[in-house]
Each structure stands twice: as C-alpha cells, then as structure tokens.
Amino acid sequence: MSLDRLQSCFERCKAESRAALVGYLTAGDPNPATSEKLLHVLAKSADIIEIGMPFSDPMADGPSIQAASERSLAAGTKMHDVFHLCLSVRKARPEAGIVLMGYANVAYAMGYEHFAEQAALAGADGVLIVDIPPEESGDFDAALKAHALHSIRLVAPTSSVQRRELAAKTASGFIYYVSLTGITGAEMGAVSDIRTQVDSLHNQSGLPICVGFGIKTVEQARSVAAFADGVVIGSHFVSCIAEHAGNESAMLAALDKTCAAMRAAMGNGSKP
C-alpha cells in the first residue's frame, strides 16, 4: 500500500537511528538509457528516490539541475520515459520511497487525473510540484489522493507561521524544508538557523521533515542529519553526470561513490 511506504521508510531509518537519504536525479539525464543505470545506482544508497521530470523552464533550479533538464530533453526524454524509469526503480527496490518532482505544466499538459494515474501505475509514492503552492493545489491534490499518492509540500525560510500551518495541514508523506532562500544548488544557510526551523516544524506537524537545497558536502549532510528526518541531495549528485560527460562507467562509479559517502553521513546508529 503506497500511502504507507514513505512512512515505513522513515520508520526504518528511525529504527536504525539515522536520517533518511533522499537522492535526486533528473529522469532521462543524460539520456534515458544511462539515466536508468544512474537511478539504479542511486537507489542502492538512497532511502527515498526523487525522480525529476525534465522541464524546459525550470525556474526554481540552479545551473546544475537546469543543465540536467536540458540534457534530458535534448536526448528526447518524454513523460512515458519518466514513468518507465520510475517503474524500473520501483521493481528494483520494492520498499524504497519514490517521489516524482517537477513543474506544474508537465502535469497540467497531461491532465492532473491522467498524470496521477500514470504516476501511481509507475510505482511512485508521492509527487512534489515546485510551482503548485497550496493555494492552487485543490484539483491537483484531489487527483493525487484518488490514486493514493502523497502530496509533498515545501516550506521555505520566507514561509510565514500561517503558511507553515497551511503546509502542515495540506501535506502528506513528508515536508520538504528548503534550507535556503534561493534556487537549488546555491550555498546552504547556517545549520543553526535550519535547526531552529526544523525544530519548530516538528512542533507544528507530525510529518517527517526533510531538508534540502544546497547540501553538497558530507559534513553539511552529517550536520543536517543530526536533527532532520531526511536529507535531500540533488545538485551534488547531478553534477557527477556533467563532470563525467561522455564516460558512462566513470559517471556511474562517481555517483556510486558519492552516494555511499552521503549514505554514511546519515548518522548510522548515532542519531539520538
């Protein structure tokens, strides 16, 4: 039952006294075939896999993930490839959490209902659309709910108390706390500030809190894993693809290594 799979992921990690590793890659980057191998490598280490749906105009993303979308679309990736990749990961990792992440127009163009149906068939557990805030999410959330998919919400440093409450009320699965005021891949904010925010979110909502945007080093990941339920790594993983462009085996090896390092930083057995 997919509604519970994300919850079990967090429970499993909690039982192991560690934070969940939430790893992001853009589907189809650098092409659908290599992307499948990369996602499988990611899925070895990550507890929750975020599969980015490429979009021509990724307004909330920095250069690294923008380039990933561009590479993916240039390689001809379509939504049926995205769903195929998702299903492939699902088959390899029946117990992993899988979240589809992207921009509104891709889902809108399919029709929210058809999109949700396909996402559920592909084995996704939840969906996070960057530019559908709670105010615009009525129809979209209804479609997700009809297919037992979680609607993941973002909370940002600029979110007011009322907006945090709104997110807590309308989110399911987990809350994604954006660790910086800015786009993906920028510099992470001060850990102490993030901790204060995550602590207060924990008081507001029973949902797990994952922290992401800008976490690039093992040290940063470790410091955030000490208090968050999950740590999201995106641009840093994606950068393995650009760094080893044209050399698939080097790309896979680099991703494997960095994923394992980040997984180790989740604080195995050390989380209070």
Partner: peptide
Amino acid sequence: GGKYAAETLMGPLA
C-alpha cells in the same frame, strides 16, 4: 492567472 509560484516567493508576493 493565479499564483503558481515557488513557496519561497509566496510570502514576498503576499
């Protein structure tokens, strides 16, 4: 129309 914006911008837009 509407406000299809990233969460970070929802506060500043308000």
